[in-house]
Simulated scan of single mutants.
Amino acid sequence: MTVRVLIADDNPVVRIGLTSLLELEPDIEVSGEASSGPEALALAEEHRPDIVLLDVRMPGGGGLDVLPRLAEIARVLMLTYTDEPAVVSQALREGATGYLVHGSFDSHELAVAIRDTAAGGVRLSPPAAAVLLQGMPAAPAAGEGAAAANGGPPTGVDPEAVRRYRLSRRELEIAEQIVLGHTNSEIAQHLFIEEKTVKNHINRLFAKVGATNRSAAVALLLGLREDA
């Protein structure tokens, strides 16, 4: 199945770059480009794309202004440089299916995010996931080796995900750091372990939950998406 994508960004260089990247994907088709929110809405109504890649701030009307109406037409994946907590929260609250921050993904991960969004998944860059996590109540984790069961600190990782994937204490610590958007280096410093060890733990964690990248892992660990 071909996924039809509408790109909405006021920067022509960004639009050209995204179009060039996505044209290399055999199952993704760029159905239009818009430089403002109102233009994106008009094109979406005309072409009925599967996915809208939507920037937040654009002259002549930003993405958030038309997001609720766009979300009635297509699945909306925010694609922006803005990671302000209030903006992320508003976008997710008003209908965005996912939120990607430029610089936190590569071209392959973008294509995967588009396919996953079209299939009903939720894609969040670590900065966006961290914002979502801040609004979630901390819950003691249950299951094999869970930190809370041993008097450890509460975590924002979904307790059901902890049980489903049978996360060990160390895996839960790594998972929490990933959800908070921390880099491998930051995780190593926080847990007082070598960065190489962090990479090994992350590879095992990804294999355990069935994720191929951080945004997919975050969605699974927060319970926003279930593995196949």
Rank of each mutant, 00 (worst) to 15 (best):
Glu186Asn: 13
Glu84Ser: 06
Arg204Lys: 15
Gly156Glu: 08
Pro126Val: 11
Glu109Lys: 04
Leu92Phe: 07
Val157Tyr: 09
Gly120Tyr: 09
Asp50Pro: 09
Thr80Ala: 02
Pro12Glu: 08
Ala139Gly: 10
Ile174Gly: 08
Ala44Pro: 06
Ala119Trp: 08
Glu45Cys: 07
Gly95Tyr: 02
Asp106Pro: 10
Glu160Val: 13
Glu176Cys: 10
Glu171Gln: 14
Gly143Ile: 03
Ser104Thr: 14
Ala42Cys: 05
Asp65Arg: 00
Val162Arg: 12
Ala130Ile: 08
Ala130Thr: 09
Phe105Cys: 03
Ser125Glu: 02
Ala91Leu: 05
Val218Leu: 04
Pro85Cys: 02
Thr197Gly: 11
Val5Leu: 04
His201Gln: 12
Pro153Leu: 15
Gly63Trp: 05
Tyr165Ala: 01
Leu70Tyr: 10
Leu53Asn: 03
Gln134Trp: 13
Asp55Trp: 06
Glu25Leu: 11
Phe206Asn: 08
Ala44Thr: 01
Val87Phe: 04
Arg123Leu: 02
Val179Gln: 03
Asp55Val: 09
Gly61Ile: 06
Arg169Phe: 12
Glu173Leu: 14
Gly223His: 02
Gly145Ser: 10
Pro68Asn: 09
Glu39Phe: 01
Asp65Val: 06
Leu224Cys: 00
Val131Asn: 03
Ala74Tyr: 07
His182Ala: 15
Pro12Asn: 06
Val66Met: 00
Val88Glu: 00
Asn150Val: 13
Glu23Gly: 00
Val131Trp: 01
Lys196Tyr: 12
Pro154Leu: 15
Ala118Asp: 06
Glu29Cys: 07
Ser104Ile: 06
Arg166Ala: 15
Pro59Arg: 09
Arg48Gln: 14
Gly62Phe: 02
Ala118His: 12
Asp9Ile: 09
Arg169Trp: 09
Met1Gly: 15
Val3Tyr: 07
Lys208Tyr: 08
Glu29Gly: 05
Arg115Asp: 10
Ile16Lys: 12
Ile193Thr: 10
Leu110Pro: 04
Glu33Tyr: 00
Val198His: 11
Ile51Arg: 04
Ala188Cys: 13
Pro154Tyr: 11
Leu79Pro: 01
Pro159Trp: 05
Thr82Asn: 06
Gly63Thr: 06
Val88His: 00
His182Met: 15
Ala147Phe: 11
Arg166His: 12
Val5Lys: 04
Lys196Ile: 15
Ala118Asn: 13
Ile51Glu: 02
Val101Glu: 05
Pro85Leu: 02
Arg123Phe: 02
Asp27Glu: 14
Asp227Phe: 08
Asp116Val: 04
Gly135Pro: 12
Phe192Gln: 10
Leu70Met: 10
Pro85Glu: 07
Arg214Gly: 05
Leu43His: 11
Met78Val: 09
Gly103Val: 08
